[in-house]
Simulated scan of single mutants.
Amino acid sequence: MTQDLLPVTRIPRTGLPPYAVVVGDPARAAAVAALLDGAEEVSYHREYRVFRGAWKGLPVTVASHGVGGPGAILLFQELADAGVRTFVRFGTAGAMKPGIGDGDLVIAEAAVRDDGVTQQLLPAAYPAVSAPEAVLALQRAARETGAPHHRGIVWTRAAFQPGLIPLDGYARAGLAAIEMELSALLVTASLRGLVAGGVLVVDGANADELVDEDALLTTGAYDPHRDVVAAGVERGAVVSLEALRLLAQGAAGTEGTEEYTA
């Protein structure tokens, strides 16, 4: 019945596992769900496609949120309303730091809140920070699966294409990558007492091009549809799910705590 569904995403109010991988692309949600045992599609409305299944015995939700923070935050809020308590955002990003290659994973310690939505919810000085246990679980999962990975602060930016505002300032500050939705998730998690983190597959590794507006606008300068990116997406899906399992077991421990710096 309609009253049993949440209003925007049309997901059920009850029955979803409390551990979730959230992705932008509905097709990627299906691909991640295909790794689960007993996967079933729960709902598909607008950009919000939701599955449930099990990863190594852990019940897991997989959901897509589309492109951009304003739409994504609606999914995060309604998943929380439905009982999800632990989130891993698994997305793609452009590298901003030399040494981060195509197909590598970037594990986000925090995010710059340039997402176009959270500034309307609370003061701009409020930070968007990943849960430390989520960072450590993602790092452990990446290490144990042999996935090339990096840790750092990412820039969540609402605009995909460059405009008249220079992009190179944050690059000089040492940010690892740029993406479009993570800070909306991290702020939602902080305000609602949830656990959240993010792992991003690099689909554009030329940091010089990233901060060069002319290069970004050049036809063919950005191509995420390459084998090296697809391989990174496959690794990232496993890392995301395995991190949820580690979080559920409380097995992230303190490994890597001494490295917890930006």
Rank of each mutant, 00 (worst) to 15 (best):
V8N: 14
T9Q: 09
P17W: 04
V21G: 00
V21C: 01
A27K: 12
A27H: 13
L35Y: 04
G38C: 00
E40M: 09
Y44K: 15
R46Q: 14
R52F: 08
A54K: 05
P59H: 07
A63P: 10
S64M: 12
V67H: 10
I73N: 11
A80I: 14
G83Y: 14
V84E: 01
T86V: 13
G103N: 00
A111K: 00
V112N: 01
D114F: 01
L122E: 14
A124T: 14
P127D: 00
S130G: 04
A131I: 10
P132M: 08
Q139R: 13
T145S: 15
G146K: 04
G146C: 07
R157N: 12
A159Q: 12
P162M: 08
P162T: 06
G169Y: 12
A171G: 11
R172K: 15
E181M: 03
G193D: 15
V201R: 05
D208H: 03
V211D: 06
V211K: 09
D212A: 12
T219H: 12
Y222M: 07
H225E: 09
R226G: 02
V228A: 01
R235W: 10
V239M: 06
V239I: 08
S240M: 05
L241T: 02
A251D: 07
A252T: 05
E255F: 07
T257L: 15
E259G: 11
Y260A: 13
